[in-house]
Amino acid sequence: APHGPQLTYSQPNCDDPETEQAALAAVDYLNSHLQQGYKHVLNQIDKVKVWPRRPFGVIFELGVDTLESTCHVFDPTALANCTVRQVAEHAVEGDCDFRVLKQDGQFSVVFAKCDSSPDSAEDVRKVCPQCPLLAQLNDTRVVHAVEAALAAFNVQNNGSYFQLVETSRAQLVPLPPSTRVEFAIAATDCVAKEVADPAKCNLLAEKQYGFCKATVTEKLGGEEVAVTCTVFQPQPAAPQPQPADPTMSVLVAVDPPGPAFPPAGPPAAAMVVGPMV
C-alpha cells in the first residue's frame, strides 16, 4: 500500500533525448532477444510516461514503432550499419510496449511486448505496382526453393553440412517466373561432401549460423538456383558475435526436387521476444 502522496507520472516530449535513449535501449534489448527473423530499428516513439520508482530511479513506459532491417538476427553487423527494409521490398513494422528502468544513469528493460506485421499490399503497390509481395513461407514453391538453394550451397561447400534453421522471407516473382527466398542455416557435425542421411546430423555445440539469399528461376527442363550464403563466426557460450566470414556464393543449375530438410519456421511477420520480466 502506498504511503504518502500517490505516485504520479510525467509526460515528457516523445523526442526528448532521455526518452530517445530509453527507446534505443529498449530496441537493443528487443534485438538481443529476437531468436528469428530480422533486427528492428527504431522508427517512432508513440507515447511516453515517466514514473518515479521506489526506492530509486524512474520507469519509462514507452510505446514504440520499429521497422524491420535487412540484417538477420544471427548477423553480427551492428544495428547502426543495418539498412531499413524499404516499402518496395514489402516492409514489416513492429509495434512495441516497453518499460525501461533508469537507475544510476543506466537503462535496463523490465518489460517488453512486441507484435509485427507486414505493410499492406496496397501500400506496396502504391510505391511499386510490379514489386512482388511477401509470400507464405509454407507455399510449396517457397519450400522447394529453400530446399534447392540449401542443397546447392552444401554441394559447393567443402566444410560442414549446413541445416535449415528458418525460412525468413520469400517472394514469388512473375517475370521471369522465379522464387526469391532468404533463410538461416546452422553448421552440423556432418561433412557436406560425405553426408548420407541429413537427419542424422547434429548442430554443433558451438553454434555456427549462416544467412542465405537465393533465387530459383524456372527454366525449360529444369531450374536455375542462385544462392549466396554468409557464414558467421561460431558463437561461444556468451553470444558476442564477431565480424562475418567471407561470403560464399554459388550459381548452379539443379534438377528439382532437392532433398528434404526440416520445416520452415513461422512467417517473417512473427516476432518472438525472449523472457519477459
Binding site: 509526460q11 515528457p12 516530449n13 516523445c14 523526442d15 526518452t19 530517445e20 530499428v41 527504431l42 522508427n43 517512432q44 516513439i45 508513440d46 507515447k47 511516453v48 521497422l67 531499413v84 516499402v87 516492409a91 514489416v92 513494422e93 505493410d119 501500400d123
Partner: peptide, 28 residues
C-alpha cells in the same frame, strides 16, 4: 471593390504536441 484588411493573429512560438515523436524512416 474595396476590402478591409484582415486582422493578423498573434504570432507566437509554435508549440508541437509532445507525442508521437518524429518518424525516422517512413510510416507503415
Amino acid at each position: 471593390g474595396v476590402t478591409q484588411p484582415g486582422v493578423a493573429g498573434a504570432v507566437g512560438p509554435m508549440v508541437l504536441p509532445p507525442c508521437p515523436g518524429r518518424v525516422r524512416h517512413f510510416k507503415v
